[in-house]
Amino acid sequence: ALNRGDKVRIKRTESYWYGDVGTVASVEKSGILYPVIVRFDRVNYNGFSGSASGVNTNNFAENELELVQAAA
């Protein structure tokens, strides 16, 4: 299972961040479909780089994520 702070690569092909590595911000335990919230260094097309207006978190299912580096 994934944990907060883990570095993960995104495998959801239609995602803006496909192939990117993000950090797990939190994992919901309530049984929702996309329980893993991942935070990225770059914002998506809703904002400009360096601006706070873009979105830099997204929810994924565990099977859409590949663990790159476990949290220390």
Rank of each mutant, 00 (worst) to 15 (best):
L33T: 09
G47C: 15
L67H: 02
G47S: 09
R4V: 13
E66W: 04
I32S: 13
T57M: 10
A70P: 11
N3W: 08
P35I: 14
R39D: 03
E62Q: 09
E14H: 09
A72T: 14
V68D: 01
Y16K: 04
E28Y: 10
R42C: 12
K11L: 15
A25N: 06
F60A: 00
N46Y: 09
A72G: 14
R42Q: 05
T57D: 05
G50Y: 07
V8M: 02
S30P: 10
A1R: 15
S49Q: 11
P35T: 13
G22H: 01
V36F: 12
N58P: 03
K7H: 06
D20N: 06
D20M: 09
R4F: 06
G54T: 04
G47F: 07
R42G: 05
L67C: 05
L65Q: 01
G5C: 11
K7L: 12
A25D: 14
R39P: 00
D41A: 09
S53L: 13
I10Y: 02
K29I: 09
G50I: 06
R39E: 07
T13H: 09
V68Y: 04
A1P: 12
N63H: 14
W17L: 01
E14S: 14
F48H: 14
S51G: 10
V21D: 01
S30T: 14
E28M: 14
A72L: 11
G47N: 14
V21K: 01
L2C: 08
G54N: 04
L67M: 05
T57H: 09
Y45P: 15
N56I: 07
I10E: 01
N44S: 06
R12E: 03
F40K: 00
Y34A: 06
F60Y: 07
V8W: 02
Y34W: 08
D41Y: 09
G47I: 07
V68W: 06
N63R: 08
S15D: 06
N58M: 14
G54I: 05
K7A: 05
S30D: 15
A25W: 14
N63C: 13
N56Q: 07
R9L: 12
N58C: 15
I32V: 10
F40E: 00
Y16P: 06
N56T: 07
L65P: 01
S15V: 03
A52F: 06
K29V: 09
K7N: 03
D20K: 10
N58W: 15
V21G: 01
A52P: 11
A72M: 12
A71W: 15
V55F: 10
Q69D: 08
I32F: 09
R9T: 05
S15R: 01
S26R: 13
F60M: 01
F40P: 00
R12I: 05
N59T: 08
N59I: 05
L67P: 03
F60T: 01
V36G: 00
W17S: 01
A61G: 09
V36A: 00
L65S: 03
I37C: 14
E62F: 14
G50V: 06
K11M: 14
G31V: 09
I10T: 03
N59R: 12
W17A: 02
R12T: 06
S51D: 12
I32L: 08
G50C: 15
A70D: 08
A71L: 07
T23W: 08
V68A: 03
G5E: 01
Y34N: 08
V36P: 00
E62M: 14
A70R: 15
E28H: 08
N3G: 12
N3V: 11
N44I: 09
G5K: 03
A70N: 06
V24R: 15
V24D: 00
Y45D: 15
S53E: 14
A72S: 12
V55T: 12
A25H: 12
N44D: 14
T57P: 03
D20R: 07
G54Y: 06
F48W: 07
S15K: 02
E28W: 06
R39I: 12
K11F: 05
A25I: 15
S51H: 07
E62N: 06
G47W: 06
V21C: 06
Y34D: 04
F48E: 15
I10D: 03
V24G: 01
F48Q: 14
R4E: 13
T23Q: 05
S49R: 04
N63Y: 14
E64R: 01
E66H: 04
L33G: 11
S53T: 13
A52M: 09
G31A: 12
L65N: 04
L33Q: 11
A70K: 13
Y18P: 00
D6I: 03
V55W: 07
S26F: 14
G19F: 10
L65Y: 01
A72Y: 12
E66S: 04
A61L: 05
I32Q: 13
L33S: 09
E64M: 01
V55H: 09
S53N: 11
S15P: 01
S26N: 11
N44C: 15
A61P: 00
N63W: 14
S51Y: 07
D20C: 13
A72N: 11
I37L: 15
N59S: 12
R12A: 06
G54R: 04
K7F: 08
N46E: 15
A25Q: 15
A52T: 11
F40W: 00
A61R: 09
N56Y: 11
N63V: 08
Q69G: 07
V27N: 03
R39K: 10
I32E: 13
K11N: 08
G47P: 15
G31N: 14
A72C: 14
L33K: 11
S30I: 07
F40Y: 01
I10S: 01
A52Y: 10
G50L: 06
L65H: 01
F48P: 15
W17H: 03
V36M: 02
W17Y: 05
G19V: 04
R9Y: 06
G31K: 08
S49N: 12
Y45G: 15
S51Q: 10
E64P: 00
G5R: 03
L65W: 01
A52R: 03
D41F: 13
G19T: 03
V55E: 09
N56C: 15
N46T: 11
R9S: 04
D20P: 01
V55R: 06
N46A: 06
S26I: 07
G54Q: 04
Q69W: 13
A70S: 12
V21Y: 04
R4C: 12
F60R: 01
G5Q: 02
E66K: 03
E64F: 03
R9E: 03
L65E: 00
V21F: 04
W17E: 00
K7C: 13
Y18M: 03
I32K: 08
P35M: 15
A61F: 06
D6T: 03
S53C: 15
Y34I: 03
R39F: 13
F60E: 02
Y18K: 02
V55L: 07
L2I: 09
V68E: 03
A1E: 08
P35G: 09
V38M: 00
V21L: 06
E66Q: 06
W17N: 00
D41I: 11
R4W: 04
E14G: 13
E28I: 12
I32W: 09
I10N: 03
N3L: 09
T57Y: 13
V38T: 00
A25G: 02
A71S: 08
Y16I: 05
S51L: 09
A52K: 08
L67W: 04
G19N: 10
A61D: 07
G22S: 02
T13S: 09
S26C: 14
L2G: 01
A61T: 05
T23N: 02
S26P: 01
D20V: 09
G19S: 03
N63P: 05
Y34M: 08
E28T: 08
P35Y: 14
N63S: 14
V55C: 15
P35D: 06
N58R: 06
N58G: 15
G31C: 14
L33E: 10
Y45Q: 15
V43F: 15
S15C: 11
Y34C: 09
